[in-house]
Amino acid sequence: MKHLPAYFTFWHILGHYSLKWTAYLVLAFLMLPIVIIVPLSFNAEPYFTFTDGMLALDPAAYSTRWYQAIFSDANWLLSIKNSFLIGALAATLSTVLGTIAAVGLSSPVMPFKRLITALLLSPMIVPLIIIAAGMFFFYTRFNLVGSYAGLVIAHAALGVPFVIITVTATLSGFDRSLYNAGISMGASPVKVFWDVVIPLIRPGVISGGLFAFVTSFDEVVLVLFLAGPEQRTIPRQMFSGLREQINPTILAVATLLILISIALLVTLEILRRRSERMRGTEF
């Protein structure tokens, strides 16, 4: 778009620039809330706003006290541990089950394919409040409310659609004749799956797993309904903090979470490139 075509009139040029500025405006809207939180988290005072000292760039107006507060508070430490633990277990569960299912689902002869796909993806569509209410009623019967197992199962169900989507996307670039070749040479479907399919679709599986992890890591509605005090997670802790006592500790946690998102984004990009390369060698 560096040089505009010769047939462009004044109106074309105006349109071009207004498009450009609209795009930048929307990008600014998207980034502003992310950017604003970082400096606020270094506020020396217990408020959510920029103090005069901060605006004057007075070093005394900045402090890391809210970061220290996170790591000296037993509740925050417990919730950090829980978030990673529940996220990891739930992601493992949904990745294992989801990957196996995606292989069956991408078979051209899979019966009721459309219906089953729609069902497997529905946890992404059904409002969380409905899932939470239903799980609260149903899981109670199995003593799963207020337990780690209950939360892991619930979050694994939420993560399934993401694994299915990413793994089927990778499988669509996967040459099925490799699978058929393995079968025709007498290997069992399980062995072929393990030795041939998995290595080839690994990038897709890992990014599906990451999606599932993030889904659990960020989820709060099910936690509000299903977790006991022992199972508090980071989002849960933030949610009650925002409802009850707003203080910059939440901003400090938010800044740390932004760092985690950046790390995830980079990892996913690397995986995507690797997956593209692998596909490239196939053709």
């Binding site: 809330p33 992310i34 604003i36 939180i37 606020l40 959510f48 706003t49 890591f217 960020d218 709060v220 980071i234 989002p235 933030m238 949610f239 925002l242 707003i246 939440i250 901003l251 938010a254 979470l257 932004i258 998102s261």
Partner: peptide, 11 residues
């Protein structure tokens, strides 16, 4: 995180 973005809008 959703909570992070909501927090930010509160601020």
């Amino acid at each position: 995180s959703l909570l992070v973005r909501t927090t930010s809008w509160i601020a």
